[in-house]
């Protein structure tokens, strides 16, 4: 699978959701998503046969996303990566979603970084082994983070 269209068909929505978990501004979200897709497409020749595609693709997505947040810090005067809720709405919003789905994304975006990373991949149906491969952490560490992330998410969503 080396065609950009194939990658977008298979992973476009998933990658957009990961980008949205790091970036609230729709224009910057799309910028980040395109950056991720260009990086994935450019990195495909380095994909080893033994590696599975999903962890490879999502590892790149998280790598690009953390460096995006780092670079945006300077432009945002302060270190909060997210816009206030509701400010990000535009007719051209990248992700087509209903209110409930947006609420989940906002809650995921508010998770601490280690929990957010595992939770986005759990929500994308990756197995613990694949998440461990994507984030270069142990499978047991994935389990611990997922449990804590679930508890935090539950608190946040119950409080609404």
């Amino acid at each position: 699978m080396a065609d950009l269209r194939d990658i977008i068909t298979a992973y476009g929505s998933g990658l957009a959701r990961v980008a949205a978990s790091y970036e609230a501004d729709p224009a910057l979200q799309e910028d980040l998503l395109q950056d991720i897709l260009v990086a994935v497409h450019g990195s495909l020749p380095s994909l080893k046969q033994a590696e599975s595609l999903a962890p490879f693709v999502f590892r790149i997505a998280h790598n690009r996303s953390v460096t995006h947040v780092m670079r945006q810090a300077a432009r945002r005067k302060g270190d909060l990566p997210n816009l206030p809720e509701g400010q990000a709405e535009t007719p051209e919003q990248l992700l087509l979603a209903d209110e409930r789905a947006r609420m989940v994304t906002t809650a995921v975006r508010r998770l601490p970084l280690p929990y957010r990373q595992v939770m986005t991949l759990v929500l994308e149906d990756l197995s613990y082994a694949e998440i461990a491969e994507a984030l270069d952490i142990s499978v047991s560490n994935v389990g611990v983070r997922v449990n804590r992330a679930k508890a935090r998410l539950r608190e946040m969503l119950d409080a609404r």
């Binding site: 929505s13 998503l33 087509l96």
Partner: peptide, 16 residues
């Protein structure tokens, strides 16, 4: 809820 959010793949392809 999470996976209900999708993108317009054709538009995304052109822009990318």
């Amino acid at each position: 809820d999470w996976q209900r959010q999708t993108v317009d793949t054709e538009r995304l392809y052109e822009r990318t």
